[in-house]
């Protein structure tokens, strides 16, 4: 594959179309999508309900294939890149298995892809993740014994086991209450932003997007196409005070305005 990436960019989406019904290619879910994402960037994708946000994440993860256009990650196709264990994914309802303990859930990716193969090394990785997500005391707990925020932290931990270069977040705070959500925003910033990972997050929450991102991509109604890209120029170390600043409020309103244009377009 020809390397079409720019200097610092790691992900390039060029003229991508996708449709779920292969018989009827007129019903596109994503249309002429163009995106370039740089290394270490935190990008939020926001758009009307059902516009195709999750479809874009699935395309980047190589779980879906475009009918036309090209997606390139570090010069590889998404499917090839996925086999290098370099993509992690966090879901709205965490993909933790209720019949396994927190420790066993974190060990699961290493059992499916046994690298390293030694048990002691695998346990070392899991212990490291446990401390990173601050869940050490709950290592032997089952998911039904955890709160929503704790479960989401385990879900994040499972995505981090192979230290992926790209992390895809599919509405990671969507199932949490407002207070937990407020805490988890900064939890995510601390856990993920500081590790210089490239993060692509799909969200419905404008506040989440503005607090966490370097760039917000507003999508049109279905079929999804990029309506606008808004840079977020706050400092890297973000705290709760940010939410009371006028720049924050004006940025939230700016995104709201674009989103209402996108939604009214229905």
């Amino acid at each position: 594959m020809v390397n079409i990436l720019e200097n610092n960019s790691i992900l390039s989406i060029q003229k991508v179309d996708h449709c779920y019904d292969k018989q009827d290619t007129n019903k596109l879910s994503v249309s002429n999508l163009n995106l370039v994402i740089n290394s270490g960037e935190f990008v939020s994708i926001i758009g009307p309900s059902g516009c195709g946000k999750t479809t874009i994440l699935n395309l980047i993860a190589g779980l879906l294939s475009p009918i036309s256009g090209e997606i390139s990650i570090f010069g590889f196709t998404p499917k090839d890149f996925r086999t290098k264990k370099s993509i992690g994914m966090v879901f709205q309802s965490p993909a933790i298995l209720p019949w396994l303990t927190v420790f066993q859930n974190l060990l699961l990716p290493l059992q499916i892809n046994p690298v390293p193969s030694k048990n002691s090394q695998q346990q070392g990785i899991v212990e490291n993740i446990l401390s990173r997500i601050q869940m050490e005391p709950y290592s032997d707990f089952y998911p039904h014994q955890l709160s929503g925020g704790m479960k989401q932290r385990v879900g994040i931990g499972m995505a981090l086991v192979f230290d992926p270069k790209i992390l895809l977040l599919d509405e990671p705070l969507g199932s949490l209450d407002e207070i937990t959500r407020g805490h988890m925003r900064y939890d995510l910033i601390e856990n993920l932003r500081s590790k210089n990972k490239t993060i692509i997050m799909v969200t419905h929450s404008i506040e989440d997007a503005v607090v966490m991102s370097d760039q917000i991509i507003v999508l049109s109604k279905n079929p999804a196409t990029v309506l606008t890209q808004i840079p977020v120029k706050f400092s890297v170390n973000r705290t709760k005070d940010l939410e009371y600043r006028t720049e924050f409020i004006s940025l939230v309103n700016q995104v709201k305005k674009y989103l209402s244009v996108s939604t009214n377009d229905f």
Partner: peptide, 14 residues
Amino acid sequence: VDNNKYRFFQILNA
């Protein structure tokens, strides 16, 4: 099977 769990296994190339 829960769709998210299935996608997670796919991401892991299971």
